[in-house]
C-alpha cells in the first residue's frame, strides 16, 4: 500500500519534471531564436535609418542636412535617437520634392519606405520577444539569461503613408 503510494508519487514527480523540462528546453530554444531575430532586426533598422540620413545629408536644404547629421551622430536605438529621427522624418515630409532631381527623389522615397518597413520588422520582433519573456515560467527561471529586455522603436511613419502600402 505505502510502497505503491511512494512509487506512484515518484512516477508522478518524474513525469512532472520531464514535462517541465521539455517545456523549459522549448522555451529556451524559442528565446534564443527570438533574441537573434531581434538583434538582426535592430541592425537592419539601424542601417535603414543610416541610409535615410545619408540621403538627407545630400539634400540642399540646410535644416534637413543638420537634422540628418544629428541623426547620423547618434548610435543605437535610444530614446534620443527616436527624437532625432522624428525631427528628420518631419523635415523630409515637409520637403518640396518637385525641386529634387529624379534620381535623388527616387532614392529618398526608397530610403523612407525601408525605414517604415525596417521599423515594422524590428517592432514585430520586439513584440514577439517581450510576449515570450512575460511568461511566468520564463521570468521565474530567468530563462532569458543575460539578454537585455528589447524595446520598441517609436517614430512617426510619414503621413500619408509613403510606404509601399495599399491605396486608400
Amino acid at each position: 500500500m505505502t510502497t505503491a503510494l511512494v512509487v506512484a508519487v515518484i512516477v508522478a514527480l518524474g513525469v512532472l519534471v520531464g514535462a517541465v523540462g521539455t517545456l523549459v528546453v522549448g522555451r529556451v530554444r524559442r528565446l534564443h531564436r527570438l533574441h537573434i531575430r531581434t538583434d538582426a532586426a535592430r541592425s537592419g533598422l539601424e542601417s535603414a535609418l543610416a541610409r535615410r540620413a545619408a540621403v538627407g545629408a545630400r539634400l540642399r536644404k540646410e535644416t534637413v542636412r543638420a537634422a540628418a547629421a544629428a541623426a547620423l551622430a547618434t548610435a543605437g536605438l535610444s530614446a534620443e535617437r527616436e527624437v532625432r529621427e522624428n525631427t528628420l522624418g518631419r523635415l523630409l515630409a515637409g520637403l518640396d520634392r518637385s525641386a529634387l532631381d529624379n534620381r535623388l527623389h527616387a532614392e529618398l522615397v526608397d530610403a523612407e519606405q525601408l525605414v517604415v518597413l525596417g521599423r515594422r520588422v524590428h517592432n514585430d520582433a520586439v513584440r514577439d520577444t517581450l510576449d515570450l519573456r512575460s511568461r511566468r515560467l520564463v521570468r521565474l527561471l530567468r530563462l532569458h539569461g543575460t539578454a537585455p529586455l528589447p524595446t520598441y522603436f517609436e517614430i512617426a511613419d510619414p503621413e500619408p503613408a509613403r510606404g509601399p502600402l495599399t491605396p486608400r
Binding site: A40, G44, L114, L117, P164
Partner: peptide
C-alpha cells in the same frame, strides 16, 4: 511586386543568419 520586393529587402536587412547574438 515592387512593393513586395521592398518587404524582401527589409527582411534581408534583418537576416538572422548574420545576427550578432549567435
Amino acid at each position: 511586386a515592387g512593393a513586395v520586393v521592398q518587404v524582401y529587402r527589409a527582411a534581408v536587412a534583418a537576416d538572422p543568419r548574420t545576427g550578432t547574438a549567435g
